[in-house]
Simulated scan of single mutants.
Amino acid sequence: MSSKEPRGWGAGAVATTLVLVRHGVTKHTAAKAFSGGLGGDNPPLTQEGREQVMLTAEWLKPLAPSVSTVVTSPVLRTVETGEIVAGALGARLVEEPAFAEIEFGEWEGLTFGEVAQQFPDEMKTWMGATEVAPPGGESFDSAQARVLDGLSRVLEAHAGETVVVTSHVSPIKLIVAHALGAPIGGVFNMELSPASATVVSFFSDGRASMRLFNGLPVSRDHFAANTF
């Protein structure tokens, strides 16, 4: 077979699988407010958020034998999420700064409605241009560069493993867009629920495969069946 001919899925390639868990709700999540990384007020999980994560951690328990590491963003709500998940799986917790949420600058803590009223032109432009940042904040293009740097480090350090990553809406969407070879603007067309799990496998030959998107712990059957 020529090296240019396609090979079967998984043939001769090692898969590194990331289970990307969004943090549970905070006061900003409940209010549908912009909540960035370490540059914001860094709210903790609410009690509801902790309960959401506990359900997801219980749902992920069948993965415990194959997961030795939970990688977390350094932001408080994701660290708390990571601690709960790592405790349930008996895994160690390590931080990856590149997986922090986008910084929203002057929009931090404001709802979408408030931003639309106070920054109408800026918000309209931001919604259609990934290179544009909120005032004092960070653009999706800039965030993509650091998130993919972090992804490369994790894939290198954990080649062939299954790793849980506790992160935020924007970094998870950016990783999914990268895995699918989709335009970065696709982040505006994805929705992730609090404490949801998204599963992506990256293969050593350069391919990637999304196995699950925005999964919620209605049933543990998917994970128990070890289908990824």
Rank of each mutant, 00 (worst) to 15 (best):
A157E: 06
T72H: 04
W9F: 15
A11I: 10
L45C: 08
I175R: 11
T81M: 01
G150S: 06
R146H: 12
P43H: 09
P44D: 05
L180V: 13
S193N: 11
P74C: 10
P194K: 02
L110D: 07
P134I: 11
A129I: 05
A11F: 08
V169P: 00
T69E: 08
M190W: 04
E58H: 07
S209W: 08
E96N: 09
L148D: 01
F119K: 13
A159L: 14
I84A: 03
T29S: 12
F203K: 06
A224L: 13
N42A: 10
E108D: 13
A30P: 02
A98E: 14
S142R: 13
G128F: 01
S193P: 00
E80N: 10
M1R: 14
V164E: 02
F203T: 03
K4I: 08
V14C: 09
L192H: 04
T46N: 05
G137H: 05
A33L: 01
Q117M: 08
V25G: 00
L155Y: 05
F119N: 09
R77H: 11
H168Y: 01
A133W: 10
E138R: 06
F188V: 04
P183D: 11
Q118T: 14
E80M: 12
L63H: 05
V85C: 05
P43E: 06
S193W: 07
E80L: 11
T198R: 01
E101M: 02
K61W: 00
S68V: 10
S219T: 13
E51D: 10
A224V: 14
D121E: 15
T17M: 07
L216G: 02
K61E: 04
A208V: 09
Q47K: 12
A13T: 10
E95F: 04
